[in-house]
């Protein structure tokens, strides 16, 4: 099992519903967020190109945050989900420094918090909160090891990119172009 996400940048309108859904579902403290929307503008006026992306932890295959954690609080569970065990986390910040995506933050209670791919929902057979609320249905969540899953099919037929693949972390969030 290898969970991954495909996000259609052509369909995303940047409404930030995914952000609010995550904050509500995961009781993220006010002022913090586990996912966010980036607007990326390329080119020179008037030839401008805009890309909207909803970003979060990439649940990397070769996660630097897991490697540098001194206590083992950062770990990878079934499906490749990168998690933090809050009772083992000393809050040293090494994983925050090591993340090329700045996807982790220091929870006000001291431990480091991040996207969990809504594991509690996924284990019940539901979609992650951000995916389930998307009004343009631009996000797809599924198992890459299953060639018939929606995510696998999309990555087979569409052009896609990952963010900062040169960082060598093997990110598992794919942006369809």
């Amino acid at each position: 099992m290898r969970y991954a996400m495909a996000i259609d940048t052509k369909k995303c309108v940047g409404c930030s519903d995914c952000v609010v859904a995550c904050q509500t579902e995961n009781k993220v403290p006010i002022g913090y967020c586990r996912d966010w929307v980036t607007e990326s503008v390329h080119g020179t006026y008037p030839q401008l190109e805009i890309e909207l992306r909803t970003e979060r932890c990439n649940h990397c295959d070769d996660a630097p945050c897991v490697r540098c954690c001194p206590t083992g609080a950062s770990h990878i569970v079934e499906g490749g989900i990168v998690l933090v065990e809050e009772f083992e986390c000393i809050g040293c910040g090494a994983c925050i420094e090591s993340c090329p995506y700045d996807a982790r933050f220091s929870h006000p209670e001291g431990y480091v918090d991040k996207c969990t791919f809504c594991m509690h929902r996924v284990n019940r057979g539901q979609q992650p909160a951000c995916v389930s609320v998307c009004p343009t249905k631009c996000m797809y969540f599924g198992d890459l090891d299953d060639p018939r899953s929606e995510v696998s099919q999309l990555l087979k037929t569409r052009k896609y990119k990952a963010l900062a693949p040169e960082a060598g972390t093997k990110p598992q969030i794919f942006y369809l172009m």
């Binding site: 083992g72 000393i90 040293c92 001291g110």
Partner: peptide
């Protein structure tokens, strides 16, 4: 002082993680 969860700092000494320089340092 710079740890956000200093009361759990003893967790450093329950494991030796060879890939983590901070674990070596501890």
């Amino acid at each position: 002082y710079d740890l956000k969860n200093p009361l759990y700092s003893w967790q450093l000494y329950l494991t030796l993680r060879l890939e983590s320089p901070m674990s070596w340092g501890a």
